[in-house]
Simulated assay, not measured.
Amino acid sequence: MILVNTGNGKGKTTASVGQAIRALGQEHTVAFGQFMKRDSQAGEQYMLHKLLGNLFFAPGDGFLTKPEQFAKHRATSEKLIWWAKERILDVDMLILDEVLYALSAKLITREELEEIIALARNNDTHLVLSGRNAPKWLIDEADLVTEMTEIKHHYKAGIPAQKGIEF
């Protein structure tokens, strides 16, 4: 199955981590890759390292904020694409967190993501994709799409990001 967690609200990564935990609880093998995110910054990364070992990979440089950063971010995205292709044949579930951000920022191409989707379908590997702005073609292709909608966020009231909540 192809599962997509998208929308402008909080919870996409959290839902993806929860899906990993559920699959692990059923003795499935899970690989979890994070686009954009630097390793060892968020609480889930610490736990995913403990649970998954080398089946967790977060080679990112943070979010793309300046055009001059594009080449560096593209290079780390390519590393994660190759890592995902190598793992997809050996796991029951592959999770690609923030892949939709990478797609909308053109750090990966539609063709690269479609190739991963085809590999997942051909190998009966569940594929979980997260990030904002899921394109229509992906929504049409997916088996399950969940949209997180922000109703209220403490950041807008001046409360900074909180450990264990945002990271």
Results as ranks from 00 to 15, higher is better:
H153R: 05
D143Y: 02
A157E: 15
D90W: 09
K152M: 06
G43C: 01
Q26S: 11
D143A: 06
I81P: 01
V99W: 04
Q34G: 07
L127N: 00
M93D: 07
A118Y: 12
T76L: 13
I108T: 02
G43R: 00
L64P: 03
Q41R: 03
K10W: 08
H153Y: 10
M93L: 12
L127D: 02
M47A: 11
Y101C: 10
L96E: 06
K106H: 15
E78P: 01
A142N: 02
K72G: 14
F167V: 13
A71Y: 08
N133D: 12
K79Q: 12
T76N: 11
I159C: 02
K152A: 05
F167G: 08
E166T: 05
T109W: 12
I81G: 02
Q45W: 00
P160A: 11
K50Q: 15
G131Y: 09
R110E: 15
P160W: 08
Y155K: 09
A157I: 07
S130Q: 07
I139S: 01
I21F: 12
I116D: 01
L48P: 01
E147H: 09
E68D: 13
K163C: 08
T149D: 12
E86Y: 10
D61H: 04
E86T: 09
D39N: 13
S104Q: 15
I108F: 01
Q162S: 08
I139C: 04
D90E: 15
D92L: 08
F63M: 07
L96Y: 03
E114V: 06
Q45K: 00
M148L: 14
G158I: 06
V17I: 14
N5Y: 14
L80T: 07
P67G: 14
A157T: 13
D143T: 08
L89F: 11
E68T: 09
D143Q: 05
Q26Y: 06
K136G: 14
M1C: 05
L119T: 01
G33Q: 05
L80P: 01
L51T: 10
F167D: 10
M148D: 11
A105C: 13
I95R: 00
A71T: 13
E112W: 02
L89R: 13
K50V: 12
T65C: 07
M1L: 11
A120N: 00
K12Q: 13
V91M: 08
L3S: 06
L103C: 06
R74G: 13
S130I: 11
V91T: 06
M36N: 15
R74E: 15
I165E: 14
G131S: 11
Q69H: 03
